[in-house]
């Protein structure tokens, strides 16, 4: 097998390139990570390239002193889990039906769906809609509007096309309903794409702060990222506001706190990836087909 062959020059070139990529990607994380621990008197003078000369946990204290941070974590986790599951199931179900040959109205449906990717009415009508639907200031505002996207639907469709037609046909001959086929043939054979879309969706929901700003007024419903965003509010401040704040003698949030907030906000979701990776390995699907 291939694993027996000796390493060639080509292998070494690949390794060198990938090591360079690794360094370029990890250095910003390192920079953020170590500087989030910098002591205030060091951080005042600027960030350190490799290692701050004095360390402290002050920045993390600022982040964790926020009284809503725990409820924020809960909401974010709950939201990410529920939204990812509903999105993947709902979008893949529509995608499966849309990918079947001979579906009446397919072209029209496709156009209807395509338009949703390019056109949107903007913030104000969406806001009014959420109020009318009773979703304003409700947990479900995180879930329902995000249940479907055209983009993910076509990605599902393109993967579903690679499932051998024979598998589906044989199930149909056994008298399985379409939903049954989708549920017990198509889904189990699509682990890589489910893992991928699931990851994309989970990361989106984990990182989204905007819905928490616009559609939620109850602080107990705010997700983590909204709370962290508030903590760092002046990054989005206009210069007029900033001048006003400085005129007051207010202190701008130091870079250290920004970095600490980022670490707190993204460490959990970063840890998700190794688990997802399990499903991105070769032969998963093939095994299922053969089995």
């Amino acid at each position: 097998m291939r694993t027996h062959t000796k390493k060639t020059a080509f292998d070494y070139i690949i390794i060198v390139i990938l090591l360079a990529v690794c360094f370029a990607c990890i250095y910003p994380m390192w920079y953020i990570g170590v500087n989030s621990f910098a002591a205030p008197e060091v951080a005042n003078r600027g960030a350190s390239a490799w290692w701050p000369s004095a360390l402290s946990l002050d920045a993390y204290k600022v982040v964790f002193e926020n009284e809503y941070i725990l409820s924020g974590f809960k909401i974010t986790i709950l939201r990410t889990v529920v939204a990812t599951i509903t999105h993947v199931l709902f979008t893949s179900m529509v995608a499966y039906a849309m990918s079947r040959p001979g579906l009446i109205g397919k072209k029209v449906y496709m156009k209807i769906a395509m338009i949703t990717m390019f056109f949107n009415g903007g913030l104000i009508p969406n806001f009014i809609l959420m109020i009318k639907l009773g979703l304003y200031d409700s947990f479900w505002v995180y879930i329902l509007p995000g249940m479907f996207t055209f983009y993910n639907m076509v990605i599902f469709m393109s993967f579903f096309r690679t499932i051998p037609e024979s598998l589906i046909e044989s199930a149909r001959l056994d008298g399985a309903s379409e939903f049954r086929i989708y549920w017990s043939i198509v889904l189990p054979n699509s682990r890589p794409v489910i893992a991928t879309i699931g990851l994309f969706t989970a990361v989106y929901h984990w990182n989204d702060y905007y819905q928490g700003i616009v559609y939620v007024r109850d602080k107990a419903l705010e997700p983590l990222q909204t709370i962290l965003y508030k903590l760092l509010a002046e990054t989005s401040m206009t210069s007029a506001q900033q001048q006003a704040m400085l005129a007051l003698g207010g202190e701008t949030t130091s870079a250290t706190v920004k970095f600490a907030a980022m670490v707190v906000g993204s460490l959990p979701i970063i840890c998700l990836y190794p688990f997802i990776q399990k499903h991105l390995v070769k032969g998963v699907m093939l095994g299922a087909i053969k089995g």
Partner: peptide, 19 residues
């Protein structure tokens, strides 16, 4: 299986388009 998607789009994507 398709129509729930269409209805979803009608509600969440098309209604705001009036704007």
């Amino acid at each position: 299986m398709v129509w729930p998607g269409i209805i979803w789009m009608a509600v969440f994507s098309y209604i705001p388009l009036v704007f």
